[in-house]
């Protein structure tokens, strides 16, 4: 059984159709890269998975449980959506760290709030887990720094640790290196690569073609709100079948 099953997702903003009949599935421990030009709907798709946008049609199922069905209002209750979000983690293009908290506090805040609500973990255990995550990101010595004291690459790594702290089933990245200076992208990509090696289930929206090819088990190319081509990364990126994919990749080859 696939860990994620997305079927016939459609989304429009007013008269603008942004996503049309998006279906794909993802296996546990696999990494999926979504590539495509700006405005192709990649980010909207991630936002739908994280319930930041509500699809107009379609279903989203995790581990066989239908979390969202556009045709069934019972799956769209506000209080429930909050819990369902925890199946997914999202790393934003612009990090969106909380500026008034240290790196460690950013990582532990949500988990501490959840523990307070549900009982279970002690504050010490959460702190310890938070420090371990920061260490895994190579930021052990930055735990007590505030976001503005960190470089963009360090901030993004804190954001990844923050998303991992809630142990999501599927970790989503929305162009995680697009807001970074070119010399800082490497450190973030290395972290994501190490997560892939640990078989973290991930969806990565990215413009880094070489990275997508190396890290992903599956690639989706989107254009104009539809999935144009999907499959093995070497096939899609090195030997695309579709003309639109070829044209898109040619732009990258020129750069």
């Amino acid at each position: 059984m696939s860990i994620l099953e997305v079927q016939h997702i459609e989304k429009h903003f007013g008269a603008t159709q942004v996503l049309t009949d998006i279906s794909f599935s993802l296996e546990k421990g696999q990494a999926l890269s979504i590539i495509g030009s700006s405005g192709s709907g990649k980010t909207t798709l991630l936002r739908c998975l994280n319930f930041l946008e509500k699809p107009n049609r379609g279903t989203i199922a995790v581990n066989g449980e239908v979390l969202f069905d556009a045709a069934d209002p019972a799956t769209q209750i506000e209080g429930e959506i909050r819990k369902k979000r925890l199946h997914f983690g999202l790393v934003f293009q612009n990090f969106n760290l909380f500026p008034q908290y240290t790196a460690l506090q950013n990582v532990t805040l949500a988990r501490e709030l959840l523990a307070k609500e549900r009982g279970g973990e002690t504050r010490e255990a959460i702190q310890e887990a938070g420090r371990a995550l920061l260490a895994q990101m190579g930021l052990a010595d930055r735990a007590d720094h505030y976001p503005h004291q960190l470089s963009g690459g360090q901030q993004q790594r804190v954001a990844i640790a923050r998303a991992l702290a809630l142990q999501p089933d599927i970790l989503c990245f929305d162009e995680p290196t697009s807001a970074l200076d070119p010399e800082l992208t490497g450190e973030v990509l290395r972290v994501i690569r190490s997560l892939a090696e640990k078989r973290t289930t991930m969806i990565i929206v990215t413009h880094e073609m070489a990275f997508a090819r190396d890290v992903a088990d599956q690639v989706i190319f989107m254009d104009g709100g539809v999935i144009v081509e999907q499959g093995d990364p070497r096939q899609v990126i090195d030997h695309p079948r579709e003309e639109r994919t070829r044209r898109f990749l040619a732009h990258y080859a020129e750069k």
């Binding site: 994280n50 930041l52 909050r82 979000r85 983690g89 909380f98 008034q100 805040l109 949500a110 998303a163």
Partner: peptide
């Protein structure tokens, strides 16, 4: 306050109340 602050709280499973008091208010 950038809308991303609120969204970051949401994807971390925080309630509207928690987002206001723990994230937005001090900013």
């Amino acid at each position: 306050i950038p809308v991303g602050q609120q969204e970051a709280g949401q994807v971390l499973g925080m309630t509207k109340r928690q987002i206001f008091f723990k994230v937005t208010l001090l900013q």
